[in-house]
Design a protein around this nucleic acid. Structure first.
Length: 710
RNA sequence: GCGCGGUUAGCUCAGUUGGUAGAGCAACCCGUUUACACCGGGAAGGUCGCAGGUUCGAGUCCUGCACCGCGCACCA
C-alpha cells in the first residue's frame, strides 16, 4: 500500500480538503513573491479590484477571484516573481447607501445624525464585513499575498491621495467651480456624470402661452423664474424680435418682463422653436445663460421643494406641484395644448431612481481634457491592450468626449477633502496641514470643506498607491502592473480613470493589459437581484459541489466581456470531473506501485502517439493561456482528461498491464500523463490537484510552485 | 438619434488568417469489464436571425434589414 492513499478509496470530498490545503499554501509563504523558490527575475503583478466591504461575496466576486487566480497561478508556475495584491474597498457612496437602508429599517435616518458618530458606525459595519469577505475570498482559493493587503482608508493610502490632490491643484488640473451639478434629492449629494442613469419616460408636453410666444415644456414646475425667452437667430418666424428686446407679459404668478435672447443651441424643429430657460436646473439652459451672461435663479431647493419665488406654491414638492401649476395656468388661459404620451429621457440617480435635479453648486472639479489626451495616446499606440478589444473603442469614445469631473460628495463616508473654503468669495484652497486661516484671495474668513472625495478619485489611484509610490521597493519592482482584470461596467468609473491618473502621477501606464469580464447572470440569463429573488450565492455552490467545480464551471465557455449564465447543472457536472480525476488517480497509483518511471522512456507505438498528443496539447494551451483564452484551455483539458486519458489511455493500459505486454510503456504513460495533467489543471482546480499531488510518491514540493512545462 | 455587443443542436455557449459545423448539460438506446453509476458504449439532433454581394468555396469578409441586451455630453 505504499503508493496508495486510503483517502482515494472514498469519493473526493472537497469539504475535508479545501481548508486544509489553503492553510498549507498560506503557511508555505509562496503567495508572497519574496518567498518564491528559485531565481525569479521577472515580476508579474495583478492588483485585485478591492472588494466592497458592504456585504457578502457575490457571484461576480466569484468570477473575479477565479480568473485572477488562474492567471496568477499560471504565471507563478512559469517562474515569474508573482504578486497578486488583495484589497478591500470602503466604497464611499455605495456603502453609505447600504448603511442608510439599514438605518431606515431601524427607524433611523442619517440626517440630523452627528457626522462623526455616523462615520464611526459605518466604519464598524465595514470592518465587520471585511473580515467576512476576506475569509470568503480565501474559500475561493485565491492565492493572493495577504501580507500586502490594503484597505482604501489606510493612512498611507490617504496620504498619497492627498498629495495627488495638492499636485493637481498646483498644476491647475483641479479647480473649485460654481457649476451646475447632478443632484439627488434623496441622497443629498451631487454626482459625476457617471452616477446618472438615463431612463425613458412617458410624460406630458405642455404648450404654454408666454406673451406673444408659445413655449413647450415637460417641466412647468421650473418655470417660475423664467425671464429669458430664447430662439434661433435664423428663425424667420421670429425675425421681427431682436436680441435683448424686452417684453411685458402675464405669467404664472403675475406680470413679468422677459428678455429675448437669440442662441444657436435652439432646435427650430422642436415644439415652436421658442423656449424659456431655467439656468439653475438645466444643463443646456445653464450653458446658454453662461454664453449670454444672464441671471440665474434657484427655483427648487435641495430637497425638491419649491422656493419662495414660486409664490403660493412655495414649500411644495415639485412632484405634487406640477398638476396644481397646470391647473392655475389653465384658469388663466395660458395653456395652449397638452401633448400626452410624450416620450423622452430623464436622468435619474443610479441607486434610487430619483429624478436628478441639476443644481448650481460650488464644488471641486478635475479638468479632464489634458489627462484624457495623454491616456488616448497610450491607448491608441497599443501600449495598453484591451481584452476583449471592443472596450478600447468604447473607452476612446468616452475619453474624446470627456467632461470635467466633479469629485465633491456631500456624504460622510469617505476621505475628507483637505481644503478650506472662503465664506466671503467662495475661493477654495488645498490645505493638507490644516494651516490656512484666512482666504488667500480676499482675506475673508474660511471654513473647512465638509465634503468627501468621490470614492473613484482615490480608487483611481489604486495601482500605484498600494505599491507605495514613489519610494517603496514594491513600486519599483511591481509597477507598472501586468493585468487589470475587472468587471466591464467599470471601464469608465475605474479603469479609464486609473489610466489617466496613473500616467499623470507616475508617467507610466498603470497596467499593460485590461481584461474585462461580463456580468454573471442567473441560469435563465437574467440579471440577479434581491427583488427578483434569483440571486445565486457562490458559497452555497462551493459548499455543495466544491470550490474546484465552481471555479472551472465559471470559466469554461465564458468568453471575456460577454455575460455568463450561471447554472447549477453546469457546476454539478464539474463536481463529477473532480471525482473523475480522483478515481483515475486511484487507478494509476494502484497500477504503478513499486514502479519507477525510467530515465530513458521507451514507449510502444500507440503510447508514443499518446505521449506526443499530450505534448502538442500542452503547447497549444500554453499559447492560449498567454492569450487569456481560459475558456478554451479549461474545456480542452477537461476533454482530454476525460475522453482521452481516462477513456483511451487508461482503458488501453488495462490489457497491457494484465497481460504484461508492453506494461512498462503503459505504466510510464499513465504516470507521466497524470502528473502533466495535474500541473496543467492546477490553475483551474487547485484544491483536488494539490491534494492528489501530495499523494504522489516522488513529488515532494507543493504543486503550487511546480514548474509549468514549456 | 448615435455607438457597442449578440442572434449557431431542446438549454448554455465555443468556433483563432474563409476550406465538409463543435463541447457541456438535457433527452434516447444499450451495458456492471483492475478506477469511477459522481460510470462506460452507441445513436440522434443545426437551410449557423433574414436578404443581397465578394469568392472555386462564407457561420467566418462586405452591404442592408429584423429582433434582443447594453452604453452615450445640449431636443426644451
Amino acid at each position: 500500500m505504499s503508493y496508495m492513499n486510503e483517502k482515494l478509496l472514498k469519493p473526493y470530498d472537497p469539504k475535508n480538503t479545501e481548508e486544509r490545503i489553503y492553510k498549507l499554501w498560506e503557511e508555505s509563504g509562496f503567495f508572497n513573491p519574496d518567498n518564491l523558490p528559485g531565481e525569479r527575475k521577472e515580476a508579474f503583478t495583478i492588483i485585485m479590484p478591492p472588494a466592497n466591504a458592504n456585504g457578502s461575496l457575490h457571484a461576480g466576486h466569484g468570477l473575479v477571484m477565479t480568473i485572477e487566480d488562474i492567471i496568477v497561478r499560471y504565471k507563478r508556475m512559469q517562474g515569474f516573481k508573482t504578486l497578486w495584491l488583495p484589497g478591500l474597498d470602503h466604497a464611499g457612496f455605495e456603502t453609505q447607501v447600504v448603511y442608510e437602508k439599514q438605518l431606515e429599517k431601524e427607524g433611523r435616518t442619517r440626517f440630523g445624525m452627528d457626522p462623526e458618530l455616523l462615520y464611526k458606525e459605518i466604519l464598524n459595519f465595514t470592518l465587520t464585513n471585511s473580515a467576512n469577505i476576506k475569509s470568503q475570498i480565501k474559500q475561493m482559493g485565491a492565492s493572493c499575498d495577504w501580507s500586502r493587503e490594503k484597505f482604501t482608508l489606510d493612512d498611507d493610502i490617504i496620504k498619497i491621495v492627498y498629495q495627488t490632490f495638492k499636485r493637481m491643484y498646483a498644476d491647475d488640473l483641479i479647480y473649485r467651480g460654481n457649476r451646475i451639478v447632478s443632484w439627488c434629492s434623496k441622497h443629498q449629494t451631487s454626482f459625476s456624470d457617471l452616477e446618472i442613469k438615463d431612463e425613458e419616460r412617458m410624460d406630458s408636453l405642455y404648450y404654454l402661452k408666454y406673451g406673444p410666444f408659445v413655449i413647450a415644456t415637460s417641466r412647468p414646475e421650473t418655470k417660475f423664474g423664467d425671464k429669458y425667452v430664447v430662439m434661433h437667430p435664423d428663425d424667420k418666424r421670429y425675425q421681427d424680435y431682436q436680441d435683448g428686446q424686452k417684453i411685458d407679459l402675464e405669467w404664472i404668478n403675475g406680470p413679468i418682463t422677459a428678455t429675448i435672447i437669440k442662441d444657436e443651441a435652439i432646435d427650430m424643429e422642436f415644439g415652436t422653436g421658442v423656449m424659456t430657460i431655467t439656468p439653475w436646473h438645466d444643463n443646456a439652459d445653464f450653458e446658454i445663460a453662461e454664453r449670454h451672461k444672464l441671471d440665474k435663479e434657484q427655483i427648487i431647493d435641495e430637497f425638491g421643494k419649491l422656493l419662495p419665488v414660486a409664490g403660493e406654491f412655495a414649500g411644495q414638492h415639485i412632484k405634487k406641484a406640477r398638476a396644481l401649476i397646470i391647473e392655475k395656468l389653465q384658469t388663466k388661459g395660458l395653456v395652449e395644448k397638452i401633448e400626452e404620451n410624450y416620450k423622452h429621457v430623464v436622468r435619474t440617480c443610479y441607486k434610487c431612481g430619483t429624478v436628478i435635479e441639476p443644481q448650481i453648486k460650488s464644488q471641486w472639479f478635475v479638468r479632464m481634457k489634458p489627462l484624457a489626451e495623454k491616456a488616448l495616446e497610450k491607448i491608441n499606440s497599443e501600449e495598453i491592450k484591451y481584452i476583449p478589444e471592443h472596450y478600447k473603442k468604447i473607452t476612446t469614445y468616452w475619453l474624446e468626449n470627456i467632461m470635467d469631473w466633479n469629485i465633491s460628495r456631500q456624504i460622510v463616508w469617505g476621505i475628507p477633502i483637505p481644503a478650506k473654503i472662503c465664506t466671503k468669495c467662495g475661493h477654495g484652497m488645498v490645505d493638507l496641514e490644516n494651516k490656512i486661516t484666512k482666504c488667500t484671495s480676499c482675506s475673508g474668513e474660511v471654513i473647512k470643506d465638509n465634503d468627501t472625495f468621490d470614492t473613484w478619485f482615490s480608487s483611481g489611484q489604486w495601482p500605484y498607491v498600494v505599491l507605495g509610490y514613489p519610494d517603496n521597493k514594491d513600486f519599483k519592482t511591481f509597477y507598472p502592473t501586468n493585468v487589470m482584470e475587472t468587471a466591464g461596467d467599470l471601464v469608465f468609473f475605474w479603469v479609464a480613470r486609473m489610466i489617466m491618473l496613473g500616467i499623470y502621477i507616475t508617467d507610466k501606464i498603470p497596467f499593460k493589459t485590461i481584461y474585462m469580464h461580463g456580468m454573471v447572470l442567473d441560469a435563465k440569463g437574467q440579471k440577479m437581484s434581491k427583488s427578483k429573488g434569483n440571486v445565486i450565492n457562490p458559497l452555497t455552490l462551493t459548499e455543495k459541489y466544491g470550490t474546484d467545480a465552481f471555479r472551472i464551471g465559471m470559466v469554461v465557455g465564458n468568453t471575456p466581456g460577454t455575460s455568463l449564465s450561471l447554472s447549477e447543472d453546469k457546476i454539478r457536472g464539474y463536481k463529477n470531473f473532480a471525482n473523475k480525476i480522483w478515481n483515475a488517480t486511484r487507478f494509476v497509483l494502484d497500477n504503478t506501485k513499486d514502479f519507477i518511471v525510467p530515465e530513458v522512456i521507451e514507449y510502444d507505438e500507440e503510447d508514443k502517439k499518446s505521449d506526443e498528443e499530450l505534448k502538442a496539447l500542452m503547447q497549444e494551451i500554453t499559447k492560449e493561456m498567454d492569450e487569456y483564452k481560459f475558456y478554451i484551455v479549461a474545456e480542452k483539458l477537461y476533454h482530454y482528461f476525460w475522453h482521452t486519458f481516462a477513456d483511451v489511455v487508461i482503458e488501453r493500459s488495462k490489457k497491457k498491464i494484465l497481460e504484461n505486454q508492453n506494461a512498462n510503456s503503459a505504466k510510464t504513460l499513465l504516470y507521466t500523463q497524470l502528473t502533466t495533467l495535474l500541473v496543467a489543471l492546477h490553475p483551474f482546480i487547485p484544491f483536488v490537484t494539490e491534494e492528489i499531488w501530495s499523494m504522489l510518491p516522488d513529488k515532494k514540493n507543493l504543486l503550487l510552485v511546480e514548474k509549468w512545462p514549456s
